[in-house]
């Protein structure tokens, strides 16, 4: 064990992985290809509400591709072809009768670069509930907006300027606004694609705290480049390399006692 792995070891969060109840999402033997290029093969993973799941791996290893399969965002890429089976609550999300719009409301997503709509803070959060008809009245909608912003830890900072543009916030605030926007449609799963990679350390810390607070309410999957971050926020970790899932298990196990030599090499900083 070298210095690097010691650092990661000390970064490990205090919370241990707990035994899963029924998994929220299950993926079996998922493969993705873009045209002739095989981006991902043979991935099988369970995602639960009790634990935060982190996907780690070097650039281009397929972790983001896999994440985007979980809410069918890959549908927007014309050349992408997904095989295998992904279930949400035991129902195949690639089944012909699955409504993609409803699926994406149940499986929310936060992107790498904060992408608030160029509208007011209020409108950013209210947009989702409005298009899904989740609020019955203006007061109801106000309540949803406030609750979502509170859960995203942003309410105290923006409550006096809800009419200001969402794009006028700082990068970290924008990202929390995006999380609030995802929470507002009351999803069951939240997918986060390197949510802190464009943020400074303080904003990153806030996002990580937030993820920890949201655990248990939503099944959270986070893709990250930052191994310390994976160690801090997750209870389950999946290591991807060259388009396949190398190892998947409890975060503590992966970081202190990886089974696969490739995982060990990556975690100890030999490549990646």
């Amino acid at each position: 064990m070298n210095q690097m792995s010691m650092d990661v070891g000390t970064a490990l969060g205090s919370s241990e992985a707990v035994a899963d109840a029924a998994p929220k999402m299950t993926a079996r033997n998922v493969a993705v290809s873009y045209g002739a290029t095989q981006a991902l093969r043979g991935v099988s993973i369970d995602v639960s509400t009790e634990n935060v799941t982190a996907f780690i791996g070097p650039s281009g290893c397929g972790k983001s591709t896999f994440l985007r399969c979980l809410n069918r965002m890959n549908d927007t890429v014309a050349s992408a072809r997904v095989t295998g089976e992904i279930q949400l609550d035991g129902k195949d999300i690639y089944a012909p009768d699955m409504d993609v719009v409803q699926l994406r409301a149940r499986v929310g997503m936060v992107f790498q670069k904060p992408n608030p709509f160029p509208k007011s803070i209020y409108e950013n959060v209210a947009y989702g509930p409005r298009i899904h008809g989740l609020a019955r009245s203006k007061a109801d909608l106000d309540g949803v907006v406030e609750q979502s912003l509170r859960r995203a830890g942003l309410w105290d900072e923006v409550k006096d300027r809800l009419a200001d543009s969402g794009t006028a916030l700082s990068g970290g605030q924008q990202q929390r606004l995006c999380i609030a926007r995802a929470i507002a449609v009351n999803p069951e799963v939240i997918l986060m694609d390197e949510p802190a990679s464009a943020l400074d350390p303080i904003a990153t810390a806030k996002i990580e705290e937030l993820i920890d607070e949201l655990r248990g309410k939503y099944a959270i999957v986070i893709v990250t480049h930052n191994m310390q971050q994976a160690a801090r926020v997750s209870q389950k970790t999946a290591f991807f390399h060259l388009g396949s899932l190398v190892e998947y298990g409890d975060t503590r196990e992966i970081f202190t006692n990886p089974r696969e030599p490739r995982t060990k090499d990556y975690i100890t900083g030999r490549y990646g």
């Binding site: 670069k113 992408n115 947009y127 899904h132 995802a182």
Partner: peptide
């Protein structure tokens, strides 16, 4: 990224375009 954001919270393609 704006299209992704709207699709990501369950807007339909027509809603993405018009909103």
């Amino acid at each position: 990224s704006i299209r992704d954001a709207a699709l990501g919270i369950g807007a339909s393609p027509v809603q993405v375009v018009f909103h």
